[in-house]
Design a protein around this nucleic acid. Sequence first.
DNA 1: AATGAATGAGATTTCATTCAT
DNA 2: CATGAATGAAATCTCATTCAT
Lengths: 191, 191, 191, 191
Amino acid sequence: MPKLKDQNKVASIHKAAIVLVTKNGFSGLKMAEVAKKSGVATGTLYVYYKSKEELINDVYVVTKKEIAGAIINPEYIKETFYETFKAMWYGYFGYCLRYPEKMLFVEQFIYSGYISEGNIETTDSYFESLNQFLLEGQKQENIHVMDVEILKAHLQGSVHEIVKMIVKDHITLKKDVMHTCFTLAWNSIKK
Amino acid sequence: MPKLKDQNKVASIHKAAIVLVTKNGFSGLKMAEVAKKSGVATGTLYVYYKSKEELINDVYVVTKKEIAGAIINPEYIKETFYETFKAMWYGYFGYCLRYPEKMLFVEQFIYSGYISEGNIETTDSYFESLNQFLLEGQKQENIHVMDVEILKAHLQGSVHEIVKMIVKDHITLKKDVMHTCFTLAWNSIKK
Amino acid sequence: MPKLKDQNKVASIHKAAIVLVTKNGFSGLKMAEVAKKSGVATGTLYVYYKSKEELINDVYVVTKKEIAGAIINPEYIKETFYETFKAMWYGYFGYCLRYPEKMLFVEQFIYSGYISEGNIETTDSYFESLNQFLLEGQKQENIHVMDVEILKAHLQGSVHEIVKMIVKDHITLKKDVMHTCFTLAWNSIKK
Amino acid sequence: MPKLKDQNKVASIHKAAIVLVTKNGFSGLKMAEVAKKSGVATGTLYVYYKSKEELINDVYVVTKKEIAGAIINPEYIKETFYETFKAMWYGYFGYCLRYPEKMLFVEQFIYSGYISEGNIETTDSYFESLNQFLLEGQKQENIHVMDVEILKAHLQGSVHEIVKMIVKDHITLKKDVMHTCFTLAWNSIKK
DNA sequence: AATGAATGAGATTTCATTCAT
DNA sequence: CATGAATGAAATCTCATTCAT
């Protein structure tokens, strides 16, 4: 956790860290580069964070929260399950497309051993209401009954991989292709 | 006659590298550790590979080939598109479940900047016949018509994310759950 | 305010580098030894210089400048060409005798491939006024007309080789021998 | 000293060592490069020489002998001291111009600490008759009386430095310029 | 004798972190 | 708080030499 000093500085440190991790991979993240890109001195990073690990954890938690917000949004609640799901799916897909580096950042660190146990639990809780929504959909027989974690993994995996491919190949996504992708997702789970 | 280059050595170096990446993450791959674990001197690593980067690239290419073999297998060719697809899907899912470290290794490095351009093209070619199979399925109206790359990304993303979740949480997968996962995949693409 | 870069440090690094090159030869220059002798950490050397090569280049340029100053000195300008030439020759000969390690250092590296192109040009410019002096001597018919570069090479070669011999054999140079050497030089070029 | 096995091999090892030292400096001489350039295996170098140091010493002694032969040659003995000296000077200058890498090789190692005491004495003996010739010239009042070692150093230094300049700048030497250089040398010593 | 793969001590270089200002 | 020079442990890589064939 950062000291609550200059929030602009924190934001630029975060941004730098995310971009650098995406570009050079986690092993390529150098504190000196984070400092340079974010316009602060290396020593300053240690004013805000005790270590590289802590910095990364902070970025992770904040980003994960932002991602939760891209899915769970009061505006997305519609009349039917289908419509709400659609809004959420588009919300998430759009977010990943706009911020692929954040998507990649979060993805990379699940297995890195860098994220502390406590933070995993914390971030999982952000998605509690999404779980409720999906369970309700199963109860109402809108979608197939199955482990919700598997369901989420399936949906998220699909979105991530498609976005990665699009970003990697510099493809400009057309509306109808995006709709095709949504159809893949919906067909897979609908009852 | 001089000593002959020992191909077992290459294999043990690979094995060590993959295991170490899995255990300590990519950033944790240290040449000294690779040397120790594979039973060679550090200098020997540099007899086989010009640099750490080249070693990793070689592991990547070899692993990617192995993965292709887990999907594209003459035994998997069945009477119907559905059955063949099912065999392939199970082949890949099973591989990922057995060797999650290889799955993760390959996944991690696509964005790491560690893989050289040439190797990306090389490894892409391994999957050519899979592309043909899917295109044929579209022509025969077994599955929806859409960009094959998107189709593959969708299917692969789903598998990877589910396997990651299972491995992460140390879940022992039951047959019926595996079948549920396959159903997700098939329902999403079938016509 | 951060710590300020310490210029004394640069000087002590230079000194250490020159002494070590003299003692152990160029191949014997080890960064760890330079660090130890100059009282800094090895990492600090890389704060000041990007690489060993750059450190050596810097020492080269600074030493070459010092050598130029041993020849081109306002005090050496006398009434006649002969007297000025004599003062310069003695200045250079004396410098080489006092700092044979610097003379050798500079001599060794011209052919070593260690000196970057730009630095050769830079250091050549230090001797421009010497060229002017010699050309003027030719115009005034004090010395033979010939390519100035050859002239300088001849004079410098003579000095270096004699000094090397003296230093190698630990001879204590008598005044009259030094005068004999000067006579060799003067007789060779005078008209 | 090499074992008297394959003299062609010895010759090509020598040639490779000389060229590589000239190009990359002494510190840049790598046994693996010598092996490659001379067309033998690294192990073979150690069949001929006990160590890198011994290899270098052998090259030194052989080259030094060759150089002595370029100066001291029965054909060069003429009627007068002047004519003999001229023939010798041209012989040496020509040799240096044709084999600058050998000249540089020998020059570099005098201060390197790599040449063993014994070999220095050995090679010095090759020049004994040159010493006699110069002493005789002094007795006959053809040239100035002074320490013969200084005299040789002066003459050799001049030749080397001029040749280095010419080779460095890729100048094609004209006959008259070569004569000018000789005149410098002769004027400096003649009585 | 000849080979070149293998070695490992030791060199160069990196980089998270500390510290003096 | 902020700075960035300084640190040094630890990483990568080199290369003279050895050794199995």
